[in-house]
């Protein structure tokens, strides 16, 4: 394989994993916009997406498409349950307390997943075969195409939802100003509930479509979600177009870094980029900049 084919190969694999980062980043954004908190359970949404898919499809033998939607629904319900339960019941609504609660929940769920499925990685078969497809000298799997397709589908759905439906617009209004939104008759609590459910669903999709390539285990979500968060910061926290751009850029940079510099430190690249962005351009690529209002 020549040098350019190699570069193309790295870029393509980078874009695939970047698509997952983008999905996770979108999940972070949706909850951040609705509540202002960093939701650590996002890690577990991603993990459980893959693990539920494994349970439904490989263990229970439910057909692929049905398993996909079943696991997505399960995680959507889990997201809603988390909002209805601890987040709603919490006696203090200080942001720091809510962030801590999500950290605690994330640990609890991860520990439970460890007990339920054990510490080993489990494989998940590709959605449609393993025949390598060649594009300009680079090799990709059908699963990569699934990842691109489903990610684009999710993005189109979100775009439609947030800009063309009443509920979507209500959610955006809540993100801009909670008080004003509730004065307009929008039930802010319901919007927050919806944001947890949606970000659960999106995280689960990310976890499910990447699992056939990387396999999945009780703690795969941590790394993916943290990189997704880095992507959200890189794109500008809270900005959905930024999340997608940030995810893809991060994925490609990481893949190139691992391929051309050192694969040992592959996982360090994303966080190095996160620290550099926070240092030099904390508003991210497409962020509006958070000026302090008094």
């Amino acid at each position: 394989m020549g040098f350019y084919e190699q570069i193309l190969q790295f870029v393509l694999t980078g874009l695939t994993i970047g698509a997952i980062y983008a999905l996770v980043a979108l999940g972070f954004n949706i909850i951040h916009n609705a509540t202002g908190i960093v939701n650590f359970v996002q890690c577990e949404f991603v993990t459980l997406g893959g693990m539920m898919m494994y349970t439904y499809y490989s263990l229970l033998g439910i057909p692929l498409i049905l398993s996909f939607f079943l696991s997505m629904t399960t995680i959507i319900l889990l997201g809603a349950l988390i909002e209805r339960g601890p987040i709603r019941v919490a006696r203090s609504k200080a942001i720091i307390v809510l962030v801590f609660i999500t950290i605690g929940l994330s640990s609890t769920i991860r520990g439970t997943a460890l007990l339920a499925w054990g510490p080993d990685n489990v494989p998940l078969p590709s959605f449609s075969g393993e025949n390598v497809i060649r594009i300009l000298g680079a090799a990709i799997l059908p699963q990569h195409l699934w990842i691109f397709g489903i990610t684009i589908g999710v993005v189109i759905f979100l775009q439609y939802f947030f800009h063309r439906t009443l509920i979507g617009k209500a959610m955006r209004a809540t993100a801009v100003n909670r008080k004003a939104a509730s004065l307009m008759g929008i039930s802010v609590n319901r919007m927050v509930l919806l944001s947890f459910a949606m970000s659960g669903g999106i995280g689960a999709v990310g976890g499910m479509i990447i699992a056939p390539i990387t396999t999945t285990s009780y703690d795969t979500g941590i790394m993916l979600a943290l990189k997704g968060f880095s992507a959200a910061i890189l794109g500008g926290y809270g900005n959905n177009a930024g999340a997608i751009a940030g995810g893809l850029i991060l994925g490609v940079l990481e893949s190139l870094g691992a391929g051309l510099i050192s694969s040992k430190f592959k996982n360090a690249f994303a966080f190095l980029i996160l620290l550099l962005v926070l240092f030099f351009k904390p508003t991210g690529l497409l962020g509006y900049g958070e000026s302090e209002r008094v």
Binding site: G104, S106, T108
Partner: peptide, 12 residues
């Protein structure tokens, strides 16, 4: 990890 997570959540 479950116990630490649960304690953290419940106390908060």
């Amino acid at each position: 990890i479950i116990i630490y997570g649960a304690i953290l959540t419940l106390v908060l």
